[in-house]
């Protein structure tokens, strides 16, 4: 569903302000965003509002998107890399309704991309803004639950606790046992939670031409990475950071460099691996790339399984 890209001028149909938030709230968020950009990786407190969707479901990202969105923007919303996951569909519909904004599934066409848990595979360009939904913005939270303590650690750049934890992992498991929300150091100063993206995506954070904004609604924090900011995944000389690699290519498009979802295809545990970034996979297939299992039969099967809702027009039967 690639909507036309022409600027939308018709007023939003809801009776709410453009992009839902009132102007005073937008100004408050905008001020926080400017300070976040000026102090890369630092969590700026902001007075997050109660939103009409649940905390933990992207209220921080939604508030950031609402504060930056203009009528000329083209919005893409993904969850787990896909445009069609229900929460991504719901958030996209929210902005269509309240801001009448153009939407797209194409990474390249979007000016603002709101995401949960992934960074698109297609390299982002200058002028694009990536808005991350963040559940727990504090990278030290699982080592020290008290914010009164972790704030001091950030103020002193005292990240010894984090290094000890990562090293304990190596001693115990032979690995840093962190596969997502893998902590990063920003410009040699702040340790930052990159949101629960897989560590596969961590290298994309660094020196990106796009602006990256992070919103945590329930925890009331905003932080940012300006374009071309140096972001380093924490590691040790003898245990360098290694992004996750996949053994097999995508079964549909044959990509060997993308993050894959494991799809269980029968009750005997048969599995296939397909791109988590649905736009990336579709574009590759449109360009003629084919994976091992890209036969039309299989694609149809998966489509039917995923689209669980029957569309036979049967009336909904009331409870007896």
């Amino acid at each position: 569903m690639n909507a036309p890209l022409s600027p939308q001028t018709a007023p939003a149909a809801t009776g709410y302000n453009f992009a839902y938030l009132d102007e005073q709230t937008k100004r408050m968020i905008r001020r926080a965003l400017l300070k976040a950009v000026a102090i890369p990786g630092h969590q700026v407190p902001f007075a997050a509002r109660d939103m009409p969707m649940p905390y933990g479901w992207g209220t921080g990202g939604i508030q950031v998107t609402a504060a930056i969105l203009g009528s000329g923007d083209v919005l893409k919303v993904i969850d787990q890399g896909a445009d069609d996951t229900t929460n991504a569909v719901s958030i996209r519909a929210f902005f269509q309704k309240t801001a009448n904004v153009a939407v797209t599934t194409r990474t390249a066409e979007a000016t603002v991309i709101q995401t949960r848990h992934r960074i698109p595979e297609k390299p982002l360009k200058a002028g694009q803004t990536l808005v991350f939904q963040v559940p727990i913005p504090e990278p030290l939270r699982f080592l020290e639950p008290r914010e009164t303590e972790t704030r001091v650690m950030h103020a002193l750049a005292d990240y010894g606790l984090m290094h000890v934890k990562l090293y304990e992992d190596i001693a115990k498991h032979g690995h840093i046992a962190k596969t997502y929300a893998y902590p990063v150091e920003v410009e040699g100063r702040y340790v930052m939670d990159p949101s629960p993206i897989p560590k596969f995506d961590n290298p994309k954070l660094s020196m990106s031409p796009a602006l990256q904004l992070f919103g945590a609604g329930r925890e009331k924090r905003i932080y940012a990475l300006p374009p071309f900011t140096r972001v380093k995944s924490l590691d040790f000389e003898d245990h360098p950071f290694e992004p996750t690699r996949f053994e097999a290519p995508c079964a549909l498009c044959g990509a060997t460099d993308s993050y894959l979802d494991e799809v269980v295809t029968d009750d005997r545990g048969t599995r296939m691996f397909v791109c988590s970034d649905t736009d990336h996979c579709e574009e590759r297939r449109a360009d003629g790339h084919r994976g091992l299992l890209a036969g039309d039969d299989l694609v149809d099967t998966i489509t039917r399984e995923a689209d669980v809702e029957r569309d036979d027009g049967a009336p909904i039967v009331p409870l007896p």
């Binding site: 102007e23 100004r27 950009v37 504060a67 203009g70 602006l211 300006p226």
Partner: peptide
């Protein structure tokens, strides 16, 4: 047009400080 002009101006400030 306070809503849209403020948004456009804000994006200019955001981009100016980001780059």
């Amino acid at each position: 047009d306070p809503v849209h002009e403020a948004q456009t101006c804000f994006r200019a400030v955001l981009d100016a400080l980001a780059e």
